[in-house]
Design a protein around this nucleic acid. Structure first.
Lengths: 186, 186
DNA sequence: ACTTTTACCGACTGATTAGTCAATCTAAAC
DNA sequence: GTTTAGATTGACTAATCAGTCGGTAAAAGT
């Protein structure tokens, strides 16, 4: 693993455990096994590291969901795949998902303006719009549906994290939740 | 307003704007119009201030929801009142609600063990359990239903904050969302 | 009246921190 | 073989910050 990735991995681990406030750059560098200066070679400021880590994680997650969810003309199957895969990723990467929430609900989120992430969100919203136009999904504001989907994702993740179910049971709950959600939206 | 409340108000404003990391205790004291030492007279450490602020906000919110939602033997009306009132409070106190999210998703949440808050959560879960036992709500894990309700609350709040609707329209959306949610759970 | 406790002040400090910089290393290009 | 550009180092610093402390004023208790 190259040093830049080591730095991101170390930052993720420490930020999730101790928060932005509680983790000095020096500790990140030490955890990553690089010199202090190396960190600032790749990320000119701590804020830069914090936002870059967020973007990097979001892109990783989207890449996973996209590759695992084959294009499908059945809207329900399409959304279900994406929902299920996003949850599987979240369960398999608890630190990463926790960081996304931590960052998103912190004032750092305001600093961020990433065209790539915005583009990605608009792509999802576009798919929702298509499902609405085809008459399958209720005629509600796209942003609203997007929010409901996200909330369920976060909420279900939280529940699964606390309720230590066996993986097989987890998959059942995930599927059932999606069915409830889909009924609600159609 | 007494000095202790001034300190909490100042801390809220600054934490939401600049984060835990970005707001020194000295700035909080200045914003509150008190001396540096006074802050530490009431809150022995910064961590203490951060968690106390969270508890204080949660209690305020619960108090509002409780007083505004009269005891009701119709489960649906009871949950609807609580859901609607919680949202109204959130819309009327955006900083407070933002802080709750910020704190809850940060590592500070792990530091907190407040019996009062835990008691409060168990009370809500008890009400859910009653609704399940009576056969009105689907036989799902209580934690799961609680999580779904909370997620919707957070999600809908986020949507309403972004989509600047007139208050009348807001109320319609809130009611409709609850109906969707209730249909899903029954 | 007097004693004790509590509220409040603000200058002060030891420790910590983000970020710098001059020097060294590496490896590819010419 | 030499040059060059980027990667890497770690000692260093100026600034900042959480928390202290000795002291004053005002309640509260007796």
């Amino acid at each position: 693993m190259d040093k830049q990735k080591e730095i991101l991995a170390a930052a993720l681990k420490l930020f999730v455990e101790f928060g932005f406030h509680g983790t000095p750059t020096s500790k990140i560098a030490k955890e990553a096994g690089v010199a202090n200066g190396t960190l600032f070679h790749y990320y000119p400021t701590k804020d830069d590291l914090i936002t870059s880590l967020y973007v990097s994680i979001k892109l990783e997650m989207s890449a996973f969901v996209e590759t695992q969810s084959p294009k499908n003309h059945d809207y329900k199957a399409q959304f279900k795949n994406q929902f299920v895969n996003a949850l599987h990723w979240a369960m398999a990467h608890p630190n990463e998902f926790q960081y996304v929430q931590q960052f998103y609900n912190s004032p750092y989120a305001a600093l961020l303006q990433s065209e790539i992430l915005q583009e990605q969100m608009q792509k999802t919203c576009g798919e929702i719009q298509l499902a609405i136009d085809s008459g399958i999904v209720k005629r509600l504001p796209v942003d609203y549906i997007f929010t409901l989907l996200s909330s369920h994702l976060f909420g279900l993740n939280q529940y699964l994290k606390n309720a230590n179910l066996p993986v097989s049971k987890q998959k059942v709950v995930i599927t059932e939740t999606f069915e409830l959600l889909w009924d609600m939206l159609t």
